[in-house]
Design a protein around this nucleic acid. Structure first.
Lengths: 222, 222
DNA sequence: ATCATTCCTGACCGAATGGTCAAGATGCTT
DNA sequence: AAGCATCTTGACCATTCGGTCAGGAATGAT
């Protein structure tokens, strides 16, 4: 009865529906593309439906509303993000952790460029739907890792740089290649980024950032 | 007679109009905000007009069309960008140049956050209006500076890192604080970024990036 | 065969969209 | 005071927007 509900699907999840599953997948994929390209207000259900190969009514049948569809995409992307670098401890090797962070973030952006751009567009617009997440879960995520970085600095394993700014630096640098792909391709005169390109960029970022905050590239002792 | 023209203003520029100048300034400022927040398609002339304190018809009288207004904003932002770091040579000091680059880019993003976000939103959406600029002027700009970085590396003044990736790294890191302000503020629990914050971030980025690509912080000899 | 549930969709709605236009207000120049 | 260019704006238009709804098609269990 509240406004955000999906009208049908009373059984909660899945149902029997191979049909439902397939259509929802198709709709979510199309919606991710369109929202990423035009932002929330700029995206139209008609376009999404067209790209999903379904009539507009069918999209609304499955997703309930434009708003509902959008938050569902955001939640999917948040889940992907939260799975990142979930278990690090003070006793891990800074070089390994930072490299893994850069690499997995890079791959996340590459594997889900539309989701990445969708996220970026949402934040660009002031994060109207994500305020709660930013000030809650994500802040905790960042602060927890920042605390570990800080301890590393105390132990002399890296320079005493502000860990939060460091996380933002890594975030922005990796995000850039997904979000601003058009710019990267335009300036470097490429049609697309190859696996080799991505590997080269990852290596570059790892090298510069690790060296930049004084992390010794590999620990030789135990 | 072609469709993008501003119908009035036959005298080309400025005219006598203090009125015109004031109104155009008001409209451009409002439009920059609204386009930045919602993207091209998500922005509405009604909202822009309201924020400019003018009736919608008046906005169209001055700007001709939504499209025309938008490209005018983009051009203004490109001009600001082009004025950046316009004269560097191989004989300059890498540390000074890189620091100046980071600092002025940071200030540009801070001074014109809406313009910065507008640019970001345009590129995020695939840069439909900016393809030409990216593959032309901006590419030349980047390649010219990349050539200088490369020569510095040959002279042993910095590590032989890919200069184009380096420029993107600086671009993305500095851009981040304007474009993703909502994220930065949410995670760090701030209301806004103070001048001191910006100074701290600039110092952090300068330090990490310079050290990261092996630029000695200051040349002590001549 | 019956029946309930799920799936599907064209027709339709009020609101908002970008843009046009005609008619008048304002102000500068002579 | 006449004349002209600039400015201002409400009324209006075709199109598109997100969303509703009624009714029919599939589907599966009994």
């Amino acid at each position: 009865m509240s406004q955000g509900d999906v009208p049908a699907n009373p059984r909660g999840e899945g149902g029997n529906g191979a049909t439902r599953e397939r259509n929802e997948r198709e709709i979510l994929a199309a919606a991710e593309r369109v929202f990423a390209a035009h932002g929330y207000r700029g995206a139209s259900l008609a376009t999404i439906a067209e790209q999903a190969g379904l009539p507009k009514s069918n999209v609304l049948y499955y997703m309930g509303s434009k708003r509902g569809l959008y938050v569902r995409l955001l939640e999917r992307m948040m889940a992907r993000w939260n799975a990142l670098l979930d278990d690090i401890s003070v006793d891990d090797d800074p070089a390994e952790v930072l490299e893994a962070f850069i690499r997995s973030k890079m791959q996340l952006s590459r594997r889900h460029p539309e989701g990445s751009r969708l996220f970026a567009a949402e934040i660009l617009g002031g994060a109207p739907f994500l305020q709660e997440y930013l000030r809650g879960d994500l802040r905790d995520w960042v602060q927890a890792r920042a605390a570990i970085f800080r301890q590393w600095a105390e132990r002399g394993l890296m320079d005493p740089v502000d860990p939060v700014w460091l996380i933002f630096l890594i975030w922005s640098a990796t995000q850039h290649y997904a979000d601003f792909e058009a710019q990267v391709l335009g300036i470097t005169d490429r049609e697309s980024l190859s696996d080799a390109d991505v590997e080269a960029i990852t290596a570059f970022l790892t090298r510069v950032i690790l060296k930049g905050c004084g992390v010794t590239s590999r620990p030789q002792g135990a």
